Amino acid sequence: MALTVSKLNQFLFFKLPAAFWCGVRVKEISGTQCVVSVKHRWANQNPFNSMYFAVQAMAAELSTGAMVIDQIAQSGKKISMLVANNKSNFSKKATGRITFVCQDGDLIAAAIAKTIADGAGQTFWMKSIGTNEKGEQVSEMDFEWSVRMK
């Protein structure tokens, strides 16, 4: 059974309340793409009147991790997941609504299949691009996910 937008947002409320209260919300998820949105507001700002980098990181990570969670659940196996590394680049002040899109869902299935087949942990990088309401890129974040059998 695939994860839905409402199930993921409910998961945020109960398991990741900091992200929920900062306004991070899943807008769309499929096997290959996930869209997460967050609006700049008082509760998630930095002293420079833009969105705090950690809030952007929460939204970007969720846009990658939600697809990992979904594909692990679909595998029916007990597989653990962990962010092993991350890299980020901030190119513009993040104000207004910022939308993070990850289109790397196709990388997950191969890593899960390989870890199921040989039991060894697998790692793979996923990229999330954050854009403002004008379509301008404000940040780019890469997350190295590690999956392994429990």
Rank of each mutant, 00 (worst) to 15 (best):
residue 2 A to G: 06
residue 3 L to F: 14
residue 6 S to Y: 06
residue 7 K to A: 15
residue 9 N to P: 04
residue 9 N to M: 06
residue 12 L to G: 00
residue 13 F to T: 03
residue 14 F to D: 13
residue 15 K to V: 01
residue 15 K to S: 11
residue 16 L to Y: 05
residue 16 L to N: 04
residue 18 A to N: 14
residue 22 C to N: 10
residue 26 V to Y: 00
residue 27 K to C: 01
residue 28 E to H: 09
residue 30 S to F: 09
residue 32 T to I: 10
residue 33 Q to T: 14
residue 35 V to L: 05
residue 41 R to H: 15
residue 41 R to P: 11
residue 42 W to L: 14
residue 46 N to L: 03
residue 46 N to I: 08
residue 49 N to S: 15
residue 51 M to T: 12
residue 52 Y to R: 03
residue 57 A to H: 01
residue 57 A to Y: 06
residue 58 M to W: 04
residue 58 M to E: 01
residue 58 M to I: 02
residue 60 A to R: 08
residue 60 A to C: 12
residue 63 S to T: 09
residue 64 T to N: 06
residue 69 I to H: 10
residue 70 D to V: 00
residue 71 Q to S: 11
residue 72 I to N: 08
residue 73 A to Q: 11
residue 73 A to F: 01
residue 75 S to Y: 10
residue 75 S to I: 12
residue 78 K to M: 13
residue 80 S to E: 12
residue 81 M to C: 06
residue 81 M to Q: 08
residue 81 M to K: 03
residue 84 A to Y: 11
residue 87 K to Y: 05
residue 89 N to A: 06
residue 94 A to K: 05
residue 95 T to D: 07
residue 98 I to L: 08
residue 105 G to H: 03
residue 107 L to F: 07
residue 110 A to N: 15
residue 112 I to D: 03
residue 116 I to A: 06
residue 120 A to S: 07
residue 121 G to W: 06
residue 122 Q to H: 09
residue 124 F to P: 04
residue 124 F to W: 07
residue 126 M to E: 08
residue 126 M to C: 09
residue 126 M to D: 08
residue 127 K to S: 04
residue 128 S to T: 12
residue 129 I to R: 04
residue 135 G to F: 00
residue 138 V to S: 02
residue 141 M to I: 07
residue 142 D to Y: 10
residue 143 F to M: 07
residue 144 E to L: 13
residue 146 S to W: 09
residue 148 R to M: 07
residue 148 R to F: 06
residue 150 K to W: 09
